[in-house]
Design a protein around this nucleic acid. Sequence first.
DNA 1: CTTCAATAGTTGAACTTTCTACTATGGTAG
DNA 2: CTACCATAGTAGAAAGTTCAACTATTGAAG
Lengths: 155, 155
Amino acid sequence: MMMEETDVLWLTDEQQASWRAFLEGTARLNETLNRDLENDSDLSLNEYEVLVRLSESPHRTLRMSQLADSLAYSRSRVTHTIRRMEERGLVVRESCVADGRGVNCALTEAGVAALVAAAPRHVSSVRRHLVDVLTPEQLVVLGQAMERVSLACRT
Amino acid sequence: MMMEETDVLWLTDEQQASWRAFLEGTARLNETLNRDLENDSDLSLNEYEVLVRLSESPHRTLRMSQLADSLAYSRSRVTHTIRRMEERGLVVRESCVADGRGVNCALTEAGVAALVAAAPRHVSSVRRHLVDVLTPEQLVVLGQAMERVSLACRT
DNA sequence: CTTCAATAGTTGAACTTTCTACTATGGTAG
DNA sequence: CTACCATAGTAGAAAGTTCAACTATTGAAG
């Protein structure tokens, strides 16, 4: 349905089109990256992201809540995800000395190995379906835009 | 880790930053829109999208497979989703006259009502967290970029 | 007309995520 | 010191998604 440009309640056709393209694109990209990653490794994209965060942290260790915050996952999602990954030997949990309530999650050697093994093909998949598909300018704007969105979701 | 600009395997720091911002932004946006929508209605974002597609189709009806394609969902996800929505009276299924294998899914009056009731607040949430947060140019580029990504995921 | 591959959709089990309630520790105000 | 509220994390059930196997129909080849 055609909307008037001045309507503040609805979206203009152009806004609508961008929003739809965004929804569809993220759905397809997510599905594609997951499929590629699961074909090439036995990690899901979510698990891969957990490994990345840990690998970039001092002592390859993070508190459960830091993991939750940086991945934008719920607390209980992190608990379950890490429990499954711990069962597979990718990470270990140990209670936190500084804060008796806290739990540290650390990468194991097997976790590092899994990440190193999966990374090259995953990066190439990200290139093939996102980075190399866009102009450098588009990619920059995309990043800037999503940064603003992240902030707006904080409020 | 700092990567060389000329490395074709890894991402440059700038590319990396955009990619991370994208991942985090989509995660937060999705979570926020879902939360808003579920507070204001009893629809999930996925269900809302189903209702939108149906509402825009001739006779407010689509084949299960068209629904799957346009939403980028798996067949079985559509089956389960529609079964649940049918139990709640939002849609009905009827077998397709033209193709004996096919199933048509149609919006009910209750489905239309649910969509109409949810739309204004949902649109305002999309505005608040995406549309109004970006410059018009950013939004356009975002849409164009994600359109390219959708295409690249087809291959 | 029959065979056969391809397409449409469903089903139930396995897995993942969310929701709700819970335990335990930490910090702070009286 | 002792309430008390906030924070950290977990546990199990409910809800949603994926996976693999299945039925049924269609369309095309012989």
